[in-house]
């Protein structure tokens, strides 16, 4: 668990991201992303994440892919394995109509960009290419050319993404106070 949760992360913060889209439905819960029966063996979890919603997701998802989802993404448990597993599978951002609170908070803490955009899931098909401007909360479907504006991330929280997440912030603060 340690290696995985401390794993790949989202890399350097970039204002603009482009990637291939996976479309997820409403109410994707943490037991779908990170089933408790696999908490014992995290390799198994990587092999099975989200398969009850999109069967081919765990085998076909690639580094740099982006999730576009409906409402209430990440509802359920506080287990941080949910955003961590998605990062480990290569997901670099999630755009959803809404997020469950803890998932949203944990994603920011892990420097995984999460954007709320109304009606977004209706504008995409799996396989489309998406372009995202994070500070402006602007997304474009490069297949249809349609651009949508979402809710801007609060400046304090945007800064959390920029510095690489809460753990980096903490370690930096401790260094300053030494």
């Amino acid at each position: 668990m340690a290696a995985l949760l401390g794993g790949k992360g989202s890399g350097e913060y970039k204002e603009n991201i482009k990637g291939k889209v996976w479309v997820f439905p409403d109410n994707v819960d943490t037991d779908v992303i990170s089933p408790s029966r696999y908490l014992e063996n995290l390799q198994e979890m990587l092999d099975h994440t989200c398969e009850s919603v999109i069967k081919e997701f765990p085998s076909k998802v690639q580094d740099g892919d982006i999730i576009v989802a409906g409402r209430n993404f990440g509802c359920g448990s506080s287990r941080e394995t949910a955003p961590a597993i998605l990062q480990e599978k290569g997901i670099v951002a999630i755009v959803a109509e809404s997020f469950a609170r803890i998932f949203y908070r944990s994603s920011l803490a892990r420097a995984l960009p999460v954007l709320e955009v109304n009606e977004v899931s209706k504008e995409f098909q799996t396989g489309d290419e998406i372009e995202i401007n994070i500070p402006n909360a602007e997304i474009t479907n490069l297949r249809t050319g349609k651009t949508l504006k979402g809710k801007k991330i609060h400046p304090i929280l945007l800064n959390l993404l920029k510095i690489g997440g809460l753990e980096k912030q903490l370690l930096a603060e401790l260094k300053e106070n030494k």
């Binding site: 949760l5 506080s78 287990r79 941080e80 955003p83 803890i102 908070r105 944990s106 803490a109 892990r110 997440g165 809460l166 753990e167 912030q169 903490l170």
Partner: peptide, 9 residues
Amino acid sequence: GLGNTDLFY
């Protein structure tokens, strides 16, 4: 509730 990274902080 919150996740592990927030908990660490």
